[in-house]
Simulated scan of single mutants.
Amino acid sequence: MDSKRLERALTAEFDPNADELRVVVRQACDLADSGKVARDRGHELTVEDIIENLNDAPKHSSLSQRWNWWLGALETAYGGYAEFRILPTLFGDI
């Protein structure tokens, strides 16, 4: 996973705040590095996959809400994705 390319694509598509962007990119890279998506879905995780799936989330969701929405779908379909979700902070969603 090219983190810089993902960062640019997420910024262009969703205009997130810097904290949210940093956390989603980190989680996406960790997910890609785990190889879980490749095992479950038969192909490596790509920037395009992430953008496409995050665009399926409810329209007025923040980037972290979109990420968690997609990870919830992956958890339901395959199991084992909960560790890649973004937990809310004391200050609310990131």
Rank of each mutant, 00 (worst) to 15 (best):
A18D: 12
N17K: 11
K59M: 02
D2R: 11
W67H: 03
V23P: 09
E13P: 00
R85E: 06
E75Y: 10
R39N: 12
S34P: 06
E7K: 13
E75M: 03
P58A: 08
A38D: 09
R85A: 04
E83L: 05
D2A: 03
Y81H: 10
S61W: 09
S3T: 15
S3E: 15
V37K: 05
V47A: 12
W67F: 02
D56F: 05
P88A: 09
A32K: 01
V37E: 03
H43V: 07
E13Q: 13
A32W: 02
S64D: 10
D33Q: 12
R41Y: 04
W69C: 08
V23N: 01
E52P: 01
A18L: 09
N68Y: 07
R85F: 08
A57W: 05
G79Q: 10
E48Q: 15
E75I: 04
T76W: 07
I51Y: 11
N55G: 09
R39G: 10
D2V: 09
R41F: 01
T46M: 08
R41Q: 13
T46K: 13
L71R: 14
W70T: 10
D15C: 01
V23K: 15
T76G: 13
W67E: 05
V23I: 13
D40I: 00
R22P: 05
A32Y: 13
H60K: 07
E7Q: 10
K4E: 09
G35E: 09
A82T: 04
I50M: 01
S62L: 14
H60M: 03
E75V: 02
E20V: 04
T46I: 08
R5Q: 10
A82F: 09
E44D: 08
T76Q: 09
L74S: 11
V24M: 03
L87C: 06
N17S: 00
I86F: 00
A77D: 15
R22W: 03
A28N: 08
A9D: 10
D56M: 14
G35R: 10
E20P: 12
R39C: 03
D2S: 12
R26H: 14
L90R: 13
P88I: 08
L10G: 06
L71P: 07
I51D: 09
F91W: 14
S61V: 00
N17I: 00
R26A: 13
L63Y: 02
N55D: 11
F84G: 10
W67K: 04
D56T: 13
R22N: 06
S64K: 06
E44L: 02
K36S: 08
A28F: 02
I86N: 07
D2H: 06
F14E: 02
D93R: 08
A77K: 15
F84K: 02
F14L: 02
D19W: 08
S3F: 07
M1A: 14
K36R: 14
